[in-house]
Design a protein around this nucleic acid. Structure first.
Lengths: 222, 222
DNA sequence: GATATCCTTACGGGAATCCGTAAACGTATC
DNA sequence: GATACGTTTACGGATTCCCGTAAGGATATC
């Protein structure tokens, strides 16, 4: 079993249960952080001291509070860790259940397992830890039934997300076009952006831009 | 201390910790349900058997799954329980931290305490349970710093929420007007609704309707 | 190099919004 | 009943969105 595990989870009500699982699995060293920044520090320190972690279990969303944080999300934490210890095994334990979000975690951040917080997630988490230890790949908790080959949501790319983000911030077409030109994002003509928004509206069955943003928010895209 | 407590919480990773707290407080009977419907049933059954609960601890949001549910939220559960056992003491334990939402819980559903899930919420929950037992009123966990007398968000009333809801569903002004006429909600002229949307835009510093809905989503108003 | 194809951009008319002003209505007061 | 006041509704012009069509540009194929 794993020898040294780091848990990044802000809610104490949840970390208690996660740590309990690790104890049951007889993990000798279990560390727990409530802030992403702290997590990165611990990983770096462990590397320097030549006693690196061999597993990270992290949440995705962290509450912000009075402390100013450099890294605010689990995504960010993983990204930062990938730069210093890319081979660290990573399990994400989060409430998020949107296939788009989860796929990018596997494909772009190289996580080993995703466990969705739910009614029977503790046993799922336990299984995921064991499977990860046995070098299985792309482990998904069983309540997530989407297919990895499903192209549907992969088609939505970062370009679309950028448009949706700006729309949700109150930008009008012309401003988006200008912003894209400044950032050298192409295509950036108002027409092209308009066309793309149209596709999104068809895809999400949205009546208008207001509706579209409401749906995008529900999907956790922005 | 309380003699019979019902915990309504779908996430097993959280309920473990909540139940642990109740055990530490020496509550002799602790029941736990993962679905709202089940919670209502248990409360009714306990009443019939003349062994009613004396405390409810509930989450607000419950994941939906294959099971078809009549009550889908903690709000709904409390509302239903209020009809059969209005004097039952109620603590809400949720991640929600929007003052608007929390105020309505106290004012309209008569909850006794609100504990926000956070980095030190278990001790807060424990305190809230004890305070509730001692008949203290309107207990808020300490990380929620808003003022009960703060008028700001109280001004947003259900009429505004209705407008925002319909907007977020892709309705145009005229359709909203028609819908309001059907439901006998007044005022229902397109002009009045337009004016109200304008006020909301000013209030939330939104540039346009798209922006407004994005903000409303963030605030958890719709 | 001619042709086809795809992608990007431009343009224009109609619909919905944004925003200010004014009329109609309801209620209270005298 | 006349007046005043606040709320609701109506109207109109400017802006933006919406949606279709078409022109311009790049690339691939022959």
């Amino acid at each position: 079993m794993f020898k040294k595990v780091l848990v990044a989870e802000d809610l104490d009500s949840i970390s208690i249960a996660v740590i309990q699982v690790l104890e049951e699995l007889q993990v000798p060293v279990i560390h727990h952080v409530k802030y992403c920044d702290e997590g990165l520090l611990k990983v770096k320190k462990a590397l320097v001291e030549n006693e690196p972690y061999d597993l990270l279990i992290t949440d995705l969303s962290f509450k912000s509070d009075h402390r100013k944080a450099n890294i605010e999300t689990g995504d960010g934490l993983i990204e930062a860790i990938n730069r210093v210890q890319p081979k660290l095994k990573k399990i994400v334990f989060s409430i998020e259940d949107k296939s788009y979000r989860i796929k990018t975690l596997f494909n772009e951040l190289g996580i080993n397992a995703y466990v969705s917080k739910g009614r029977n997630s503790i046993i799922e988490l336990r299984n995921a830890i064991e499977s990860t230890f046995n070098n299985e790949e792309k482990i998904l908790s069983s309540d997530l039934s989407f297919n990895f080959n499903d192209k549907a949501l992969i088609e939505i790319e970062s370009y679309d997300i950028s448009i949706l983000k700006l729309l949700s911030q109150g930008y009008i077409l012309e401003s988006i076009s200008k912003e894209f030109k400044d950032l050298s994002i192409t295509p950036n003509g108002t027409s092209s952006i308009e066309k793309r928004i149209n596709k999104l509206k068809i895809y999400f069955k949205a009546n208008n831009n207001v509706h579209l943003i409401a749906i995008a928010k529900d999907f956790g895209l922005v």
